[in-house]
Simulated assay, not measured.
Amino acid sequence: MPLTNPWLAGPSPDRELPQDVLEERILNLLSAHNTAVIATVSADGSPVATPVRYFSLGFEIFYTSWNDSVKSRNLRRDPRVSAGIVAPLVGQASSCGAQLFGTARTLERDDPDADRYWEAVRWQADHVERGRSIDDPPTDPLTVITPTRILYTEHWLRRDGYRPRQVWRRA
């Protein structure tokens, strides 16, 4: 049987990507996708995973959420959070994604810090789809996830002699 990706066979390389290359690949992934699974900690300590549509600025991702949602209540009690983002998977060679580990904060619409994030949210299409006027911007809070560590996985890196899992840490 022919081997379609011979570079996937054998042991994984252990070389680290240069920091600037790793950061570029992470930013590309965050910009090219818009769905993440957010994991929060419930009151009894069990994990709660929720899919969300996110937006990104740099290494931060953010999404709209109601203050009384389960994930928002969990984050008020414990701001630790993990988010998983994955590219469509066709096979081992296409395996690519990131796990973000950090903390979350909620910005109310009137918070001065919220404006810079709201500028990156494409809310107008949602308003049109729901029959709302685009003259009335949303008033929902934003939840911003600031990662301290990102585990980036891309098996295509093996082709160039780099390990498929790379770790980014906030400076």
Rank of each mutant, 00 (worst) to 15 (best):
N67E: 14
T103W: 11
I85A: 04
S82K: 07
S65K: 02
A87I: 02
E60G: 06
L75G: 02
T64G: 09
L100H: 04
L89G: 00
V86W: 12
G97Y: 03
L89A: 05
I61Y: 08
G102H: 05
I85D: 01
R77F: 01
N67F: 03
G97H: 06
R80S: 12
N74A: 02
I85E: 00
Q99H: 06
P88F: 13
A98R: 01
R76D: 13
Q92T: 02
K71R: 12
V81I: 14
R76S: 10
F101K: 13
I61A: 12
S72W: 03
S95K: 06
N67A: 12
G102S: 06
Q92S: 05
L100C: 02
T103F: 13
K71Q: 08
R73H: 10
L75I: 09
C96D: 01
V70I: 13
V70Q: 15
S95F: 09
G84V: 15
L75M: 12
D68C: 07
G84K: 00
G97F: 01
N74W: 13
S94E: 09
V81Q: 04
C96K: 14
D68V: 09
A87D: 14
R77G: 05
L75N: 03
G97A: 08
D78F: 02
F62W: 08
Q92V: 07
N74I: 04
F62R: 00
T64I: 05
F101P: 01
P79I: 11
C96A: 13
F62G: 01
I85C: 04
Y63C: 06
Y63R: 07
G102N: 09
V70C: 06
L100K: 03
S72I: 03
T64Q: 11
L89F: 15
G84L: 15
G91Q: 10
S94C: 09
D78K: 06
L89T: 12
A83T: 08
L100S: 04
F101Y: 11
E60T: 04
E60S: 15
P88C: 11
P79C: 10
A83H: 04
C96M: 10
A93D: 13
L100P: 05
A104N: 09
R76A: 12
R80M: 00
R73I: 15
S65I: 05
P88G: 10
K71G: 01
W66E: 14
R76I: 00
N67L: 12
S95H: 06
F62H: 06
A83K: 01
F101S: 11
N67T: 15
I61L: 14
R80Y: 00
S65V: 11
G84Y: 06
K71H: 13
L75F: 07
A98Y: 02
G91M: 00
S69H: 10
D78P: 05
S65T: 15
V70Y: 08
D68N: 14
S69P: 05
W66A: 14
A87P: 09
L100D: 03
Q99W: 07
Y63L: 06
W66Y: 12
D78A: 03
E60Y: 02
G84Q: 08
S82T: 15
P79N: 15
S95A: 14
S69G: 07
P88A: 09
L75P: 03
T64Y: 09
T64S: 12
A104H: 06
